[in-house]
Amino acid sequence: MTLAFSWTILAFMKVIGGTQIYFHSSDPAVSPWPYQVAAGGRTHDPGSGGIVDRKYHQHTLILTLSGEGWIRVGDREVAAEEACLAWLDTSRTYAHRATPGNHWSYVWIALSGATLDNFFMQLNLRAEPVVDEMADLLPDFEGIIQQLASQHPLMDAHMNTQVAAILAKVFTKRAGTPPLNEVDPVSKVIQQLRKDLSRNWDITAMAVVAGLSQSQLFRRFQAATETSPVSWLRRERMVQAEHLLTVSSENVSAVAQRCGYADPFHFSRDFKRHCGRSPTAFRENARF
């Protein structure tokens, strides 16, 4: 029992540079809980590291512990000082790093859930991603990271309680912020794609969701994400596939179906282009 439990922790924890990362070890498709925490961790950026701009299928919340960093969303940069919360929708163009000469330490979680996109828009977090004076969130962040490290059978229940507490505190802090008058067309498309990655989407269907012509959607999507709608969808599917291949025991064909690929060969070809290895090789490396 002890050996198996220790293996689970080691299998889903990695140290990359100054970042200690804990990954969730279960399949989000079978979870009854509204929020899924894919990963969390602690980072110390000495000010000499590179810019972080990786793309994920989640919202990422960063709570600064000390020092100062900066967050770039689109063409706007915002300082993230001690005790600030930065909320990023990583499906869009963003970047962050320590301010040169500063040692920036922070904790973070990456999560998804049906209501998060609406929450993000209603509190205008896309335009104002940094919330000041949020030191009281630290126990919730640390609790989530500890749950990820433990891989306890009841971890999802505990983490959902802590995510709800974070959302409540952010909502209370930002409740007076004027919301956006409407959801922009690109956000509408992103929300629908995230909800159903397995659907056989094409640009025509996306344009209908956006209420735009195909050429208008392409231009506006490119401006918001620096990629085309089809390329964005393919990348999101590959991120989802990486997670499923790591945490589920489904065969490659089943994972392909869940990621919107009717043809396993087509899926394997796209996955190898994305990751540099086949789905089977990726799964073996991720687990062992």
Rank of each mutant, 00 (worst) to 15 (best):
I9F: 11
I9K: 14
I9A: 15
L10K: 09
L10C: 12
L10E: 11
L10S: 15
L10G: 15
A11S: 14
A11N: 13
A11L: 05
A11T: 15
A11P: 00
A11W: 06
A11G: 13
F12Q: 09
F12W: 10
F12H: 07
F12S: 06
M13G: 04
M13H: 15
M13F: 13
M13T: 14
M13A: 14
M13Y: 04
K14N: 15
K14G: 12
K14F: 08
V15L: 10
V15A: 02
V15P: 06
V15M: 04
V15Q: 12
I16P: 00
I16Q: 07
I16F: 04
I16D: 08
G17V: 03
G17A: 11
G17T: 02
G17K: 02
G17H: 00
G18Q: 13
G18P: 10
G18T: 02
G18S: 05
G18F: 06
G18R: 01
G18A: 07
G18C: 10
T19I: 12
T19C: 10
T19S: 10
T19R: 14
Q20G: 02
Q20T: 15
I21V: 15
I21T: 12
I21H: 00
I21P: 04
I21C: 01
Y22W: 11
Y22G: 08
Y22H: 14
Y22K: 07
Y22T: 04
F23W: 04
H24Y: 07
H24R: 09
H24D: 13
H24N: 15
H24V: 03
S25I: 08
S25P: 06
S25V: 08
S26M: 12
S26H: 07
D27Q: 10
D27T: 10
D27W: 11
D27H: 01
D27P: 05
D27F: 02
P28C: 06
P28D: 03
P28S: 08
A29N: 13
A29C: 08
A29L: 15
A29H: 13
V30T: 07
V30F: 12
V30W: 00
V30D: 05
S31T: 07
S31L: 01
S31K: 02
S31M: 07
S31I: 07
S31C: 09
P32R: 06
P32L: 08
P32T: 03
P32C: 11
W33R: 05
W33H: 14
W33L: 09
W33K: 04
P34E: 06
Y35N: 06
Y35I: 03
Y35K: 01
Y35R: 00
Q36V: 13
Q36D: 09
Q36R: 11
Q36N: 07
Q36C: 09
Q36T: 15
Q36H: 11
Q36F: 10
V37H: 05
V37W: 02
V37D: 09
V37Q: 00
V37R: 01
V37T: 01
A38N: 06
A38C: 03
A38Y: 08
A38S: 07
A39R: 07
A39I: 00
A39E: 11
G40H: 06
G40V: 01
G40E: 00
G40L: 00
G40A: 03
G40K: 07
G41F: 01
G41P: 04
R42A: 08
R42M: 10
